[in-house]
Amino acid sequence: MKKLLLLFMLCLSFCTGMYAKTIHWLTFIDTTDRNVGEIDKSSRQLLYSRWIDLVNTTLKDNGYSVNIVDIYDSNTSPENCKKIVNSFNCGSEDIIVFYYIGHGTENTGASKYPLMLMGQLDANKFIPLSWVHDTLKNKGARLTVTIGMCCNARQGVAGRITPTFGANYGNTYVSEELSNCIKKMFLNYRGNVLITSASPNESSWACDTTIGPTDYFTFSLLDQFNNELPETSNPTWDSMMESIKEDVYNNVRNNVYIQNKFPGSTQTPIWETHLTSASTPTPTPPDKPNTEDVSDKSDMLNTLSNALAYISSTKVSAKERIVMAEKLEKAFDNNAIVRIVSQDGNLVLHKENISIYLGRIATSRLLENVTVVDATGTTNKISSIRVREIYKKR
């Protein structure tokens, strides 16, 4: 694995001028809980395919590489969270987004923002969401967003809602309106945003949708970015959160199952923004992220995703894209297979040999971005990868 990482870093040395800034995603998701683990697994998949992939695709054209710290299953622990947050480093033009999905409890007498259980029940180890936010915002990034989707209740799927978008078993597309919205939300501000999905003494409720089980807050966030904000001329974090607050509150109050079982239940997201207007950033080399707390595979997936994003970018000359593709191919077995999967459900749409695939994306004028979902192989060579392709909606 170390050899692969070294090869990828050599490949990426060709695109340091284009990717001088980084968007860091720190996601901590408790997928092992007996009551809500399956819901959180679905939420994790939706969060990446319906939000993170789309944001990364848009910001790529503004010079941003991607660093994903994806913590789930048994890796979700207070020790891991504390270590990663404390040791994290970034550049002054970087963007940080922290997103927690799991159990939580009120931080009584200390903060209106909750304590995160992080996959265990020892109260002495609970992590304050406010501590994570304060620590990350002091790293000096351009924009820091901290989101905690948690409560102190243990519940399963509670009722059903009709989503405003259905499951997509084809390729992912990003519209010009959505792209412009993402740029305004992530690049037009400096500062920090702290969000939690419920007020003190409230639960965060799960819901079932046509795109899979998730929670009301995450679903509303995805709905905002996929449907509502692209129709807004001047979207802001505060206006978005006002809409999410109203949607989540009304959905819980109107859910017959919840109200019959827990009469009077409410869920009211709370947040605070400390933002100033800013112009689109210019490329500046960031500090190298500290990834000692992340597995080699996570590093490999990040580096591989950034390399494929470069090869598929229409902002790079055809000659440079082909040169990068030829170098990257050396990290794969000759018979390595690329599986292109759908936006939802990970349905395999197509399979290609690595040589054919790299040649295709290096000469494509339609592809916007490629995200690596998973990769397998030996110490020296990769034998297969699964990717999602994102296209510009015409």
Rank of each mutant, 00 (worst) to 15 (best):
E292Y: 13
S243F: 09
H350D: 02
S295Q: 01
S87C: 04
Y257F: 12
N67H: 14
F98L: 06
A325M: 02
N124T: 08
M116N: 00
L301E: 10
R394W: 07
I39C: 02
T232S: 06
Y100T: 06
D238E: 15
N35M: 11
Y357V: 04
K183Y: 14
I68P: 00
G191C: 05
S204M: 08
T218S: 15
T209N: 11
V387P: 00
T268W: 06
K21G: 03
D299C: 15
Y310E: 05
E246C: 02
S220W: 11
G140K: 11
S197M: 08
S384F: 08
W51A: 15
K112A: 01
Y113F: 15
D33T: 00
N35L: 10
G63L: 07
A153V: 10
A309N: 15
L347C: 01
R142N: 13
S312Y: 07
G191E: 09
A158R: 05
F332W: 10
D122R: 05
V132Q: 02
T280K: 08
S295V: 04
T162K: 11
S317G: 00
G345V: 03
S313R: 03
N234T: 11
S13R: 11
V316L: 10
V256I: 13
Y99D: 06
Y173G: 00
N107S: 05
G17V: 05
D134M: 02
L47N: 06
N260Y: 01
T379G: 07
E79R: 12
